[in-house]
Design a protein around this nucleic acid. Sequence first.
DNA 1: TAATAACCGAGACGGTACGTCGCGTCTTAAT
DNA 2: ATTAAGACGCGACGTACCGTCTCGGTTATTA
Lengths: 217, 217, 217, 217
Amino acid sequence: MASSPHAAEADRTGGTGRRHHGNRHGRSEEARLAVLEAADDLLVERGFAGVTMEAVAARAGVAKQTIYRWWKTKTDVLMDAFLQDATESLTPTDSGDVGRDLREYLRRLAWFLTEADSGAVFKALIGQAQHDPAFAQEFRARCLDVQRRRDRRPLESAVRRGHLPADLDLAAEADQLVGPLYYRVLVTGEPAGDAFTDGLVEAFLARHGVGELTGGS
Amino acid sequence: MASSPHAAEADRTGGTGRRHHGNRHGRSEEARLAVLEAADDLLVERGFAGVTMEAVAARAGVAKQTIYRWWKTKTDVLMDAFLQDATESLTPTDSGDVGRDLREYLRRLAWFLTEADSGAVFKALIGQAQHDPAFAQEFRARCLDVQRRRDRRPLESAVRRGHLPADLDLAAEADQLVGPLYYRVLVTGEPAGDAFTDGLVEAFLARHGVGELTGGS
Amino acid sequence: MASSPHAAEADRTGGTGRRHHGNRHGRSEEARLAVLEAADDLLVERGFAGVTMEAVAARAGVAKQTIYRWWKTKTDVLMDAFLQDATESLTPTDSGDVGRDLREYLRRLAWFLTEADSGAVFKALIGQAQHDPAFAQEFRARCLDVQRRRDRRPLESAVRRGHLPADLDLAAEADQLVGPLYYRVLVTGEPAGDAFTDGLVEAFLARHGVGELTGGS
Amino acid sequence: MASSPHAAEADRTGGTGRRHHGNRHGRSEEARLAVLEAADDLLVERGFAGVTMEAVAARAGVAKQTIYRWWKTKTDVLMDAFLQDATESLTPTDSGDVGRDLREYLRRLAWFLTEADSGAVFKALIGQAQHDPAFAQEFRARCLDVQRRRDRRPLESAVRRGHLPADLDLAAEADQLVGPLYYRVLVTGEPAGDAFTDGLVEAFLARHGVGELTGGS
DNA sequence: TAATAACCGAGACGGTACGTCGCGTCTTAAT
DNA sequence: ATTAAGACGCGACGTACCGTCTCGGTTATTA
């Protein structure tokens, strides 16, 4: 869901034309999806300031109370929206070639952060994390830790295959690998094209003496 | 200024007991400083959500309109507060030893970002930049570019002395050097102690074959 | 309501201790009355300048938005407050004796305009009508026309009984009867005691040759 | 002055092109007139709400402080503006014929109140008097008492010539004569044409038995 | 002739109130 | 039990004027 402005507004009733107004047991999946979608769309269309509870409720065709029943804050909604459709975008490949895998992965990560709608949500959440320590903690527990584990996977494969030493501090290495990319996206705002990410991979490989073993891009 | 709750509230009259209420040629320096100080203090004491225009005005003993006359938004105020007292905190040393200088600089940068009050302001502004592209642009132009130029300076010294090759892409190298630190501060939120920053420097030096020439930490 | 400072503040919950916070079908009667009461009281206690939306909201224990939801302006509130409790104060008597009825009615009208709290509201509204043509129109439609019809009623009774000629222009006659009273209240500000209003009635009766048929005061 | 939007803005320097900026002894007549004119014009063009101190100062090309130096409030300014050009409009004629004089005078008074720019100022001041008792007192002392004395003059002439009994309470009679006119203008807002004012005179003359002695209009 | 002092313009200042927006809570009737 | 609807108390927004206060410049009078 939520990867672009949706035409679903009119279709949320499932084509039957009926509206859902209550349910004796359990929540409305319909409402849940409509809220996530609305939040996502509003962020993309109007920016973070446009994502208000009232706007989300109105666009989702849902009562405010329904949102508050299931989410604490609007960033909580955005976090769910992010989880809903961000996971699959970044599953690393595993071709057997560390260099190729890393290049591919960093390119996709860069694209995700700078181009994808989910990336916009992600950046908004990162931004909010700078303002609100409590949120930061929850955001890290629910989203970032998963993401960091993903970042580490190509390195783990390489270690498993013996392309990298077994005693490597994978967490630290992964941070050094993706850190400059996040820095570029979050801080400097410069474009992070293939040349840039490939450069990061090159430096990483050189550092560990595997640069010459793997093919270029 | 503005690095902790201030006792200046009562001293804003400059000790003469007179109040400044504006004059023909330009603004009240007294009011300007009170506002910057108040914004800074509120951010540290109550977090970003506590920095409302009304709270700043009240704490500064200033009319709201006086703030709006000189600043567009509260982040604009925070940016000025940041510029007011952040510059001198991060001037790099130049001992002639790249390794020592870099270690020293990164340690101070890490301290600044995680401990200093100005660092809190900086993080808040970075956060806002994720929410508001227009602000992001202005923030980069007025603050970040200066900061990046500072980040590059130790490397420039090293090149001048011949400790690093002259054809190095300093901007890219600097980004690789500080990127993981920002990543840690802004994204993962893990502590960035001396061990961490020294590790970054070590990796950098190893990458350029100058690791063994300079002393350890 | 609204004829003096009220003790109702604490009773607005209706004695049950529960607060009303809105419901699906229509507005809070509780809030409505509290607002009218507060506006009325503020006018009497602090004058027209004291009737600010903020003061009304604060005194009524109501949010500003709740006032704006149902009234356009503060004079709109005062008009409702006036209508709420002014109607019954001025219902003319009908004793069968034109002179007695007119004397009685004009005395009560004079008292209303100069002494009653509602009279103060009325004068404030008349004042506003001089400043704002659009308001003047609405005020006349909603309040003054009713009032003028009341003014005419004693004369209508007299015509019905044959004490006054049937072809009399009642509107014009009523205007001539009450006009000098309003003039005194609104323009000259002189006291309008019984002697004054009785004099008006006397002149009126003399003009139509019924002075000697009816008893004095 | 001040009887219609003025083209004087550019001519306030007296055609010399020079501006007045100070004077050792005494105030600037130029500034005084510009303020009165601006207040008058703003009232006519934008209504009472448009007469703000700032707008008056801006339109008069005068500093706010200059207004506050010579006038307490904006209604004080309007009162001066009214006095400046209202006196001569209403001087009663004295033809020797009470009926003719009264008819003429009431017609002019009605025109003044409903059509003239000064009448608009007058109504605004009357309106303010309903809101502010202190102002009401001053307004009556400085403006209304003069006006009422004017209202009485035609009657005084008639008494002098013996057309009306010498023991008549002129103040009361004058109030009864003009009261309905003010009532119409201030309260009902109905047009007050010649037929209406002539009717008032007719009724007055009939009341005193001089109706048949004087010619119609 | 120079200094002086009352007045002028400009406009920044501390405030109050405005009318609006969004928050999170609540009540209701319907499903 | 959950929903859509929406009124509510609340707090902050950004704006308009208020009345006060310097400030520098102008100008008629005094020194």
